[in-house]
Design a binder for these strands. Structure first.
Lengths: 214, 214
DNA sequence: CGCATAACCGTATCGCCGTATGGTTTTGGC
DNA sequence: GCCAAAACCATACGGCGATACGGTTATGCG
């Protein structure tokens, strides 16, 4: 009938260009013309795949949160396969959220750029809310599962624990981003962050794993 | 010799207009013309007091961080006068950082808007870094003082504790902002946040105050 | 083949932004 | 009272943004 192209692929390619631009030059640099140039397409093509700039940014933001979600999910799946303790899997998953290498730093920058813009854009704010709730939810499930296998005290509130742990990790991520070279006592900030997270998890997962389940 | 006006006052008035605009409509709404209108002045006057828009935004951001710093400092001074325990004073000071009422929510929005922009603007990033370091520093001093009066174990690292507590508070502030109406277990999020902060402080200030000092 | 149709492009349009500029008004000091 | 200088204003200007639009190219299908 007519020429065809992989619609979804194009949209993801364009979104990737947005990510690169935002990570390196900030959200203001993500103009339609700039994105088109970065993606190696024309302005008209970007318009062909996204009705408006808002739709483009929304899609790009959703892609980022999805990528983070998938990385965490992969960590969890890996932990389940290798039959590790819930505490250890959760620890590794949380480390995925810290800006400790260039890739994660870029992701962090993009996320935070959109988070800033979400102050003025309810649609973006909704994405941010959902993403945060998702992480908290996964964590709460992990804590709940911890009760069944004996790693967590039965009376501990999973919601409260998830709130506490995610808050801590988010705050540490921010500090790690702002000044990666900072020293805490005689440790690096990164080592301090890991120590803090581990201690916090130890206060949640206080027992030994007796019987495993996902 | 010539007509006079309170230079600093005008600058603060204009900065206040920036704050109102940013809090209600976001940083993008803070155009020079918009700020002038909000302040009730002309575009030319704003130019008269600020060489460029960047200088205006920088000044406005500094004003916000200063306001927060001053509020925390006032809380501490008040606590010292009333001879309260360090733990209690710190707790109240940290509550000042949470977006729990309209004023603080506005302040939070402004801070976060600038934080987002600081991804692209090193000068703004420096302000953010300094502001965060300042809060952490005040907290570390409080922990240090706690050792002298017996509220804190002598071997506890003030830097590490400050890192942990500020991270937690920042993360909770974010959650509180994103969804103030959220419930955690059968508590409100705000109650949960206070409970979490108190528990964290209790893990730092483990002793009784024996002898007081600032 | 051939043509309908989707993929893709280049540019015109229009509005808004930051800043420059050339004023007018006010007032402190002599 | 007068005048220099600061306070303050209105508008012009150049640039860049998002979007609209008309055109061109390529290709699946009959």
């Amino acid at each position: 009938m007519a020429r065809t192209a992989d619609h979804d692929l194009r949209r993801r390619q364009i979104a990737a260009a947005v990510h690169r631009l935002v990570a390196t030059e900030g959200l203001d640099a993500a103009t339609v013309a700039g994105v088109a140039r970065e993606a190696g397409y024309s302005v008209g093509l970007v318009q062909h795949y996204f009705r408006s700039k808002d739709e483009l940014l929304l899609f790009a933001y959703n892609q980022v949160t999805k990528a983070i979600h998938d990385r965490v999910a992969a960590r969890i799946a890996d932990g389940v396969v290798r039959k590790r303790t819930i505490s250890a899997v959760v620890f590794d998953s949380l480390l995925e959220l810290l800006p400790i290498d260039d890739e994660r730093r870029g992701e962090f920058r993009v996320s935070r750029a959109f988070l800033g813009r979400s102050l003025e854009n309810d649609t973006l704010a909704e994405v941010a809310r959902t993403a945060a709730a998702d992480i908290r939810g996964q964590l709460a499930v992990a804590v709940h599962n911890g009760k069944e296998c004996g790693e967590v005290e039965p009376h501990l509130d999973p919601d409260l624990a998830a709130t506490r742990v995610t808050a801590l990790v988010d705050g540490l991520a921010e500090q790690l981003y702002q000044d990666p070279a900072r020293a805490v006592g005689r440790r690096t900030l990164r080592a301090a962050a890991e120590e803090i997270i581990r201690a916090c998890l130890d206060s949640v997962f206080t027992g030994e794993c007796r019987q495993y389940r996902s």
